[in-house]
Amino acid sequence: MTQEMILANATLVLPEETVTGSIVVRDGQIADIAQGTSVPNGAEDCEGDFVAPGLVELHTDNLERHMKPRPKVDWPHQAAIVAHDAELASVGITTVFDALRVGSILSDERRNYGKYARSVADEILSMRDSGGLRISHHLHLRAETCSETLVEELAEFGPDDRVGIVSLMDHTPGQRQFTDISKFEAYVRGKYAMDAEGFGEYVQFLYGLHDRFGKAHEEATVAAAQRFGAVLASHDDTTAGQVATSAGYGIHLAEFPTTVEAAQANHAHGIANIMGGPNLVRGGSHSGNVAAMELAQRGLLDIISSDYVPSSLLLGAVMLGNEWGNMAKGLHTVTAAPAKYTNLEDRGRLQVGLQADLIRFRLTEGVPALRSAWHKGQRSA
């Protein structure tokens, strides 16, 4: 039986402009788009609300927060995945690349963290394939080069897993995200109740890991991404030299560049800049790095990621729409752009023939309030 839905009298967020009109969804696809304020019989009157493509999230640590809601508390994984899925749906995300860390530290008692990516990936894929989730889930492997077990953990994945993104991460203190080592000290000592002496010893331990494994782990990560057929991303690039290395690896996405210099170098190499929604909403980086809005004002921001606050994705896009005086351009950073750079050609735009991943929202005192969301034409929120 044909299933049809009409959203009428809406402010449609098209790829380059917003227009008042209606959209017809039939059997999970966008079947027609028309301009005008008429509301046909049986249509849902959107009363001028925005109707936009569903949001595409490329890098979120939100699942890890559900699996470990407090230090030393492990929540059942299936329940955590369901809660994570529902939270993302509730803020308009219809496609997510779930970020899972690969690379563990097992020998340092002050901050041991073991592997989990393979088992959690299996659970996500099983729940996805059984139809138990509201939105579309894909895998994003965060490859920690400053670790002990990265090569072994990458080897547990293969082309059949359809890994979408592999990000090359180096959290060695004193560079990239933590160029200001005092920011790293405040973060680590606060999170792990570590004294000054213990922190100094821990930093030396990390330097040793970087010296022993850094280059080999980078090469293994690049090779793994090629083997998976995944998009390769860099993380926290700070200098033009680091960007040149990224470009040499064939990287097309740059997660959270920390300086204007790095963001400019990315564009010179044809690499898209991803910035965090929390950075945009808060007006700056919690690590003291470049503000996302500064890059937006310089024409250097391409994609927003919600990072650790899912609701920041839609809010950040609306903030950019207001800053640029073009709501379609703002929403582009969370819909068409992330879909394009991850080769998802069937979504991210309001266009006839594409998958009907849609959201309806209105602005309440400047803040977007989600009214409804649909994934493949089925209501997800």
Rank of each mutant, 00 (worst) to 15 (best):
T179D: 12
D180P: 03
D180R: 12
D180W: 09
D180I: 08
D180G: 06
I181S: 10
I181H: 08
I181V: 10
S182P: 05
S182L: 05
K183N: 15
K183Y: 15
K183A: 12
K183D: 10
F184V: 03
F184H: 15
F184Q: 08
E185P: 02
E185Y: 03
E185N: 07
E185C: 07
E185F: 05
E185G: 03
E185D: 13
A186N: 15
A186R: 12
A186V: 13
A186G: 15
A186M: 13
A186K: 11
Y187P: 01
Y187F: 14
Y187I: 05
V188R: 03
V188D: 08
V188S: 09
V188Q: 09
R189M: 14
R189L: 05
R189N: 03
R189Q: 11
G190E: 03
G190H: 02
G190Y: 01
G190R: 03
K191W: 09
K191I: 10
K191D: 03
K191R: 15
K191T: 08
Y192H: 07
Y192C: 05
A193I: 11
A193K: 12
M194G: 02
M194R: 01
D195A: 02
D195L: 02
D195S: 03
D195P: 06
A196F: 03
A196Y: 01
A196R: 02
E197T: 12
E197D: 15
E197G: 15
E197R: 09
G198E: 06
G198W: 05
G198N: 07
G198Y: 02
G198S: 09
F199K: 00
F199G: 01
F199S: 01
F199R: 00
F199E: 00
G200P: 10
E201V: 02
E201C: 05
E201A: 10
E201N: 08
E201K: 03
E201H: 05
E201P: 07
E201S: 04
Y202S: 00
Y202N: 00
Y202K: 00
V203H: 10
V203M: 07
V203G: 07
V203Y: 10
V203N: 07
Q204D: 14
Q204L: 04
F205M: 07
F205G: 09
L206P: 08
L206F: 08
Y207I: 04
Y207S: 12
Y207L: 14
G208A: 14
L209Q: 01
L209I: 00
L209Y: 01
H210L: 13
H210I: 04
H210M: 13
H210Y: 07
D211Q: 11
D211P: 13
D211H: 07
D211R: 04
R212M: 11
R212N: 13
R212W: 01
R212H: 12
R212A: 15
F213Q: 08
F213L: 09
